[in-house]
Amino acid sequence: MVAAMTDGNLSPGATQIGDPGGKSDAGVRSIGRAVSILELFDAEHPSRTLREIVSLTGLPKTTVVRVLATLETLDLVADKGESTYGLGTGFLRWVDLARSLWEVSADVRRVMAELVDACGETVNIYVRRDRSRISIAQVEGSSTVRSVVKVGVPYSLMTGAGAKILLSGTPEPVLRALLAQRSDADSEAFRCEVLSINEVGYAVTHGERELGASAVAAPIHGADGRVIAALSASGPTSRFTADRVGTLVDQVTSAAARIEQLGLGNVEAFL
């Protein structure tokens, strides 16, 4: 697979595997290019034209064509004709497996549903993956106007109540890297905010991730005491009044404590 996607700018046998700039580096680079192409497909864009892929990745057309050809032989991409591509059948064998590995338990789902019944807002469980946060479970709110995020899609670890909770357990090198990406961030003030959230045990944000959206989040600790996830209730800022936020904090922290007692399920092995 790696050999098939090797860049091609290097002559075979020119360098040994592991040499700087050698085949292994080219292979990793090729895998990165393949992933960057696959990430262009989502619910809003189930298919992409060759021209779109070239434009969005910024890769040379010849490179894109070569990577697409390799992905097609692996059934990870399907050619729909007229230089238009979609995901291939190869992904089908991984869908149920990935869902089963990352799904929270039925008991946890029940607690999330009860929280939605109590507060009416959308409830998510977020985990940190490197420098991003990802929702691995969601129960949509009962109101017509509600906040919904995409499960499995990376979101910023710098904004939002769920992110602030997860940051309390983030290793120092990751935190420094995140702050380096945000030149507009006051690093000392940000660190103080994260420390304060860790001490009080919940976070409340308004309009950080998206204008007009608010959230309340609380930590979910693992058996070893680490913050392994964040339970969040989010919705329109207009409903997150000062009086109601206090009630939401109680509801979310109580639900997070119940989930801690239950355990998230098999997914904890990855956290």
Rank of each mutant, 00 (worst) to 15 (best):
A4M: 13
T6W: 02
S11M: 15
S11E: 15
P12G: 08
P12I: 09
A14K: 06
K23W: 09
V28M: 06
V28E: 11
S30M: 01
S36T: 07
L40R: 04
F41P: 07
P46S: 08
S47H: 14
R51E: 14
L59K: 03
K61D: 12
L68C: 09
A69T: 13
T70K: 08
T70R: 07
L71E: 06
K80C: 13
K80E: 15
T84N: 12
G86H: 10
G88S: 05
F91V: 01
L92D: 08
V95H: 02
A98I: 02
L101G: 00
W102L: 05
W102T: 11
L115P: 14
V116W: 08
V116D: 05
G120R: 07
E121S: 06
T122D: 02
T122I: 11
D130G: 03
A137Y: 10
Q138V: 12
S142G: 11
T144D: 08
R146D: 10
L157A: 10
T159K: 01
T159V: 00
G162C: 07
A163F: 00
E172V: 15
A177W: 00
R182K: 04
S183H: 07
A185Y: 04
A185S: 03
C192H: 04
I197H: 08
I197D: 04
Y202I: 09
V204N: 05
V204F: 10
S214D: 06
V216S: 12
D224R: 12
D224I: 05
A230C: 12
L231V: 14
R239W: 06
T241M: 02
L248V: 03
V249A: 09
Q251F: 13
L264E: 13
